[in-house]
């Protein structure tokens, strides 16, 4: 597999009806890289991520995951997805199953692992995210942060070669964000290839190998975090970072308000 990028996206377009959400995206993610995608709401970040494992059908362009062209109609998408873990903003744990069953069901039904093996791997991965003692709980009995960590363990149990994170901390109470980011930082340190859509700028700055800034369905700017955060080249990037990193210093004239008169 050497010389083959984990993700290769070329000229990707995606429209919902007349609304063009992605307007020509080119992006490559190498094995072991952590790429963080930032940008305002509606910029197409999540759609880009969801195109990678075909949760959204691209309108045009090509996406290769580990060398497999997923937009090919003959592509066995289920096989590709087995190797691509995904973590959602809303966790999407299976509410009718215990934590252990959440982490074992796809191992058993998709990978056809035996019960004992699946349980062992589930336990290992729950231990990895610090929730080994919650195996018999139901998702509803866990905090949001714990649920998201279970969701990460559920994805890891499939031995993915790539993990997609779709705003994994956006639905969490502020004090629960840290525990999820800690798990993700650990994964990055272990060398997991990760594509992360996030609003956590501190995480992106610290952990990402590369940061991609998207706006209006295109990649405006991409580069090492020190460059994108430290000396952004594009005006649009500067404006976005200013608003996100210094929300209390957004001036009234900037937004066209007239409050002090």
């Amino acid at each position: 597999m050497t010389g083959m990028s984990t993700i290769e996206i070329g000229a990707l377009h995606k429209s919902f009806g007349r609304l063009e959400v992605l307007r020509g995206i080119d992006l490559t993610v190498e094995a072991g890289e952590v790429v963080c995608v930032i940008g305002p709401s509606g910029s197409g970040k999540s759609t880009l991520l969801r195109c990678v494992n075909l949760l959204e059908e691209p309108s045009a362009g090509s996406i290769r995951v580990a060398g497999v062209e997923v937009t090919d109609p003959d592509c066995d998408i289920d096989a590709v997805r087995r190797g691509v873990g995904m973590v959602f903003q809303q966790f999407n744990l299976f509410g009718h199953l215990t934590v252990r069953e959440n982490v074992t069901i796809a191992q058993r039904r998709v990978l056809k692992r035996g019960r004992a093996e699946a349980n062992r791997i589930a336990q290992e991965n729950l231990d990895r995210v610090g929730l080994a003692d919650k195996a018999d709980s139901y998702p509803a009995q866990l905090s949001g942060g714990q649920q998201q960590r279970v969701a990460i363990a559920r994805a890891l149990a499939m031995d993915p070669q790539l993990m997609l994170f779709d705003e994994p901390t956006s639905a969490l109470d502020p004090e629960l964000v840290g525990e999820v980011l800690a798990v993700m930082r650990g994964l990055a340190a272990e060398g997991m290839t990760m594509l992360v859509v996030t609003h956590e700028m501190a995480f992106a700055r610290e952990v990402a190998s590369r940061v991609v800034f998207m706006d209006g369905g295109v990649i405006v700017e991409a580069g090492p975090p020190a460059q994108v955060f430290g000396s952004p080249r594009e005006e649009r990037t500067r404006e976005f970072l200013h608003r996100v990193l210094e929300p209390t210093r957004v001036s009234e004239t900037e937004i066209g308000a007239h409050l002090t008169e």
Partner: peptide
Amino acid sequence: PKGQLEAARTLGMSHPRAMVSIVLPQ
């Protein structure tokens, strides 16, 4: 919720398998 089916499909389950194991029980 639609996310249940998406999560199941993301784990590599086929559509029928996801319906039987995840959606229909709920």
